[in-house]
Design a protein around this nucleic acid. Structure first.
Lengths: 329, 329
DNA sequence: TTTATATGTGTAACCGGTTCCACATTAAGG
DNA sequence: CCTTAATGTGGAACCGGTTACACATATAAA
């Protein structure tokens, strides 16, 4: 690889001059610029970002920490982040935490060691020292952190909508599947749904889960119908779990949505392709990723920012696991 | 952030000594080591990877280039790569190429500029200068490159199996959906299937596609049944496309698998969850990712390697979009 | 014409590590 | 007791960039 010295020698100037034309900073004579540019072209020189980063104490890299890219919701987020970052010439170091604090810390440390300029993290522990002590901007994605920059969707409202729509469509003995205790958005969704049902005095059961894995989801789905056989409506913690419930219901010979209605959360690709297709509360994942990236860039560039916390809207996406309500009016 | 100088001062030694204890190289007196380790602990010092990387001219970073992480096949690969790399203390810079040469080049350049020690690429152009001129090891994943390190599954064999099983289950007018022309594995699959059908003298049609996007897949599915209404078997280029075909067939009132059989490729999560669930040719994506990472690490560490090319087995995964064959014997 | 200012370029310090080398001290061998 | 090898440590060069500063020349203003 050619270095700046090679270019300098080749063009018959000093490295400082080469640096000036590279960065378009300071005075450089037109003729000199041309010589340097020619040399750069001939040697196919591209500056070493590592050296640059060392001196400047910041790179063009940002860290992206996600729970598990294998969960279909996260690639959408990741892609949104990447697209926005790429357009702004930032690159991404990625890590999967598996919701595991140790791995999370490890990755954050890697980010710091590599001089990232900022990070986007989807974590359940935004209030730990791991983040508080960081002196780079961090945007929390899909998870809130009070008073810290974050992009998330309104899980509570989502839960409310789900409960409301399900009741409006006639379910009277509802089971809510409560997501993993340590996953914040899952608890918000649960809380929203529970609030509405309590308010309306509707009976509901709760099934507690501890992960989003599909295999385990099957087990909980079985458990659900064993424990609460009269359930006529299920509000699931996400679409993966909802899918497992749908399969179990069908396996038990229940008619969906006639015997049981099901509402999921997220709206991943899968949801629209199931038979019957899954009614769900949609989160604009890709847009959330882009928004987080955009916010982080503003933070990095130290622009004044009005809204450090961006709440994205959640939408009821009606498909075939819920009954239709008659048109009024 | 504390630097090595701070640690040295704090411990009352030189930076060289601190470096020695960090790297466990050369002679260091036990007492000195303890002092240094104490200082490191107190200052919460972690070495700056950038400085290290600059001097050594290599980092602990590897580049991972994928077409599109939004396509459910790739997160599996990515996760396999990440897990293997993480266990070996390598971190990942990720990029989505969208099968676009310009973006691909950009990312490869970023990798080089950041001193990555190696790269894993899923590209259709492994034989370009972009890769040939690189002086870091590269492993091609999911895509072959003759005589270059690569991990892929036997697409041709997969195509053959699909054709064979479909014929064995009675389809006689088969339509093969040929994946994008520029995507190598897609062409292999097509070729494998076409070979078998030709050999057996079975009539088949071909529908040409140009991407893996689900929305477009719907269009091709429509086209398929318009152009070849008598199709009684579809071999799709992957599970996404197969899903679109399944939906279109159902929409047209065809019975699957009685009127039309469908075989996909990849075996993504979605496939097992459809109704009817999708018969497909499974690729061990996660394991492929791990294998690629492991191979790259060997290459980086310059170990002697027997098999620079790893072909992973492909398996017929029978589900409900194909008819059952009777047990013989 | 003289002075102030703008333009153009090179030298060298610096970023935070690693490693070569010189030098000192201690332990082992004859 | 002397020589040699092993052990222990620090100074300084180096990796490849960026930038403060000094210096030279050209241009504009007085």
């Amino acid at each position: 690889m050619a270095t700046i010295k090679d270019v300098a020698k080749h063009a018959g100037v000093s490295v400082a001059t080469v640096s000036r034309v590279l960065n378009e900073i300071g005075y450089v004579h037109e003729d000199t610029r041309k010589k340097v540019e020619a040399a750069i072209g001939e040697l196919q020189y591209t500056p070493n970002e590592v050296a640059r980063s060392l001196y400047k104490r910041k790179s063009r890299l940002i860290g992206l920490l996600l729970p598990d890219i294998t969960n279909p919701f996260f690639p959408e987020l990741a892609r949104g982040v990447e697209d926005e970052m790429h357009e702004n010439d930032f690159r991404i170091i990625i890590g999967n935490s598996d919701e595991n604090i140790k791995k999370e810390k490890e990755y954050i440390q890697t980010f710091v060691q590599n001089n990232v300029v900022g990070a986007i993290a989807s974590t359940n522990h935004p209030d730990t020292d791991t983040y508080r002590k960081l002196n780079i901007p961090v945007v929390f994605l899909d998870r809130t952190a009070d008073n810290r920059p974050s992009v998330y969707s309104d899980g509570r409202e989502g839960g409310r909508i789900a409960a409301h729509e399900m009741v409006a469509r006639g379910s009277r003995e509802i089971t809510i599947i409560q997501g993993p205790k340590h996953v914040r958005p899952a608890q918000d969704r649960y809380q929203g749904a529970a609030d509405i049902l309590s308010d309306q005095g509707i009976l509901f059961n709760v099934v507690q889960t501890s992960s989003y894995s599909f295999t385990e989801a099957g087990t909980w789905a079985k458990e659900l119908f064993e424990q609460y056989p009269n359930t006529d409506g299920v509000i699931a913690s996400n679409d993966i779990v909802a899918t497992a419930v749908l399969h179990e219901a069908l396996r038990l010979g229940k008619k969906v949505p006639d015997d049981v209605q099901i509402i999921g959360f997220d709206d991943i690709l899968l949801s629209s392709l199931l038979t019957p297709s899954l009614t769900t509360i949609r989160q604009p994942a890709y847009d959330m990723g882009r928004a987080a990236a955009s916010l982080l860039i503003q933070l990095i560039e130290n622009q004044n920012i009005d809204h450090k916390t961006i709440q994205m809207p959640v939408t009821f996406t009606e498909r075939d696991t819920t009954r239709k309500v008659e048109q009024h009016g």
